[in-house]
Design a protein around this nucleic acid. Structure first.
Lengths: 203, 203
DNA sequence: CGTTGACTACCTACGGGTAGGTAGATAGCC
DNA sequence: GGCTATCTACCTACCCGTAGGTAGTCAACG
């Protein structure tokens, strides 16, 4: 039967532990023993639930992507055009990554080391999202509802402004006094991103 | 005596090879055998020049930091205030990282995996640069020569806009058709960053 | 009702590979 | 002779994955 939605079955515990380990140390830097130990079993027992390290990794990413897709669907509601829509997308993206910081770090690991979900494979998922964002921006710029910019680079800048903050948080901690992931600093960052893009985008 | 500035001594060859390897695969993902092989010697011979893997890594970063400091000194020339100065700094930073893409990737690795040069240690170098940038921005905003923004977050956004592009280039490759590090795309990115920040910063 | 057989989840032990680091020998150069 | 740079051979530690064994559960069947 469906083994999901029981208490926290071993398999689900393993997925959570693996997500945190992969996010913290990347694919190559994570050992199956550590993950198994987090859950309180031995490594071979882990391999009873997932046939290989790579399979476990893919399962983790599949979980995260599911949440990601739900965000995209959710973004279909809300304002339809102009800056209000751009703002809504920025806000939703910020909030999503705020709540899925592990995904941010896994993305960065993938981009850097090219994990088993090779860059190409990951890019296949990101490509349509990227194209949709570019199309939206170009349409709004053509209509004069947004200031004209290089749409492709604009999307990259937007993602970078959000992703970098979360992925570089450990480094930023040593740069500023407050915890960059604390509620006050997160609010401050969110407002900055919105204000900054509005200043550049609203005609 | 000073062993530098000979032809390309083995030590210097090792530093270059190590820089590329560490940038490509991070500290943990790089093996000394690979570095030694790049130079044409065996691993124990490498350890004759550098007592440990960590020592080699630190030597690489020291080299890069030297170039970085020279950039900061160089930035003291040029415009003194307002958007022209901000633009000059952005341009110099962009050009520097364009020419030191290995450093970009090593930075990202450090932020992610917390390499042997612990984040704190790296942050000690970055902290004064960060504070100086914040002070400049706040002074210019107070004087009304730049649009008001959250100075600290503005610096982070600026660095993110430049660093992310270079460090994520492998991923971006699969997102757009052209090579993001080719001359045309680099020119395009540079112009976008400048335009975007001018739009948000010029009063 | 009791026994058998399949299944699940875990274990210990091992094999094959790779990592960083060390010891000691060798060859060339001042 | 002494110093430098390199080598081969070795060590320990860790990795992933597999083999084989052991409890416990649960359903089917005589």
């Amino acid at each position: 039967m469906d083994a999901v939605a029981r208490f926290p079955g071993t398999r689900e515990q393993l997925l959570v532990a693996a997500r945190e380990r992969f996010a913290a140390h990347g694919f190559a830097g994570t050992s199956l023993s550590d993950i198994a130990h987090d859950v309180g079993i031995r490594r071979p027992s882990l391999l009873h639930h997932f046939p290989s390290k790579e399979a476990l990794y893919r399962a983790v990413l599949l979980d995260e992507f599911t949440d990601w897709i739900s965000l995209v669907d959710q973004a279909k509601r809300g304002p339809r055009e102009g800056w209000p829509r751009a703002e809504a997308i920025l806000l939703a993206t910020f909030t999503f990554f705020e709540e899925h910081s592990a995904l941010v770090r896994i993305f960065r690991w993938e981009a850097l080391e090219g994990g088993p979900i090779l860059r190409e494979e990951l890019a296949q998922v990101l490509h349509p999202l990227f194209e949709r964002a570019v199309a939206f921006l170009e349409r709004e710029m053509d209509a004069g509802r947004l200031q004209r910019h290089d749409a492709r680079n604009l999307v990259l800048t937007g993602y970078g402004a959000i992703l970098s903050y979360f992925s570089d948080a450990p480094l930023i901690t040593a740069l500023v006094e407050e915890d960059p992931l604390g509620p006050a600093e997160l609010r401050r960052r969110r407002r900055h991103v919105i204000d900054f893009f509005r200043e550049a985008l609203v005609p």
